[in-house]
C-alpha cells in the first residue's frame, strides 16, 4: 500500500507542477528576476502548497501514519555548514537554469534533450554528494 500511496502522491505532485506552470523554467527565472520582468506566481504556488500542507500537518496529524508504523521526519534542528553550503550550491544551479528536481522529472515526457541532460547531471551531482555524505 505505501508504494501505491507514493505513486498517487507523485501523480498529484506532477499535476500541481503542471497546473502552476512551475514546469516552465521561464516562470521561475522571472520570479527570481525581482528588478526586471518580475512574475510573482511562484510565491503564490508556495503559499498554496504551504497553506494546505501546514493546515493538514498541524490539524490532522494522527499518532501514526495510516500505512506505516511511525512518522519519518527530519531530526536535525541545528543550522550547520552543510545546510548553508548545500543551499548556496543549489541556489546557484537553480538561478542559472530555473530548474529544480521536481519540475525536471515532471518534464521528462516532454522529451526535450536539455531536460534529459539536466537530469543526468543532477543524478551525477547527487551520486557524488551521497558518496561524500557516506564517508563522513
Amino acid at each position: 500500500m505505501p508504494t501505491v500511496i507514493a505513486f498517487i502522491a507523485g501523480l498529484l505532485f506532477s499535476f500541481g507542477l503542471v497546473i502552476s506552470q512551475m514546469v516552465n523554467p521561464s516562470k521561475v527565472i522571472n520570479f527570481l528576476n525581482i528588478t526586471g520582468t518580475w512574475d510573482p506566481s511562484l510565491a503564490f504556488v508556495m503559499l498554496g502548497a504551504i497553506a494546505v500542507f501546514a493546515s493538514g500537518f498541524f490539524v490532522l496529524k494522527p499518532n501514526k501514519p495510516l500505512f506505516n508504523s511511525e512518522f519519518d521526519l527530519p531530526s536535525k534542528t541545528n543550522i550547520d555548514k552543510p545546510l548553508i553550503i548545500g543551499a548556496v550550491l543549489f541556489g546557484l544551479g537553480w538561478g542559472i537554469t530555473g530548474i529544480c528536481p521536481g519540475p525536471a522529472l515532471a518534464n521528462i515526457s516532454g522529451l526535450s534533450p536539455k531536460i534529459w541532460g539536466f537530469i543526468c547531471m543532477m543524478l551525477v551531482g547527487m551520486t557524488i554528494a551521497n558518496k561524500v555524505k557516506q564517508h563522513k
Binding site: I5, A6, S20, Q21, V45, I50, L60, N68
Partner: peptide, 22 residues
C-alpha cells in the same frame, strides 16, 4: 493557477505524510 497548482503540491505532500509518514 499558481494557488491551485500549489494546493495540489501541498495535498500530494500531505498524502505522503499521512499515508506513509514520509
Amino acid at each position: 493557477s499558481a494557488l491551485l497548482g500549489g494546493a495540489f503540491l501541498g495535498f500530494a505532500a500531505l498524502l505522503l505524510l499521512i499515508g506513509n509518514g514520509k
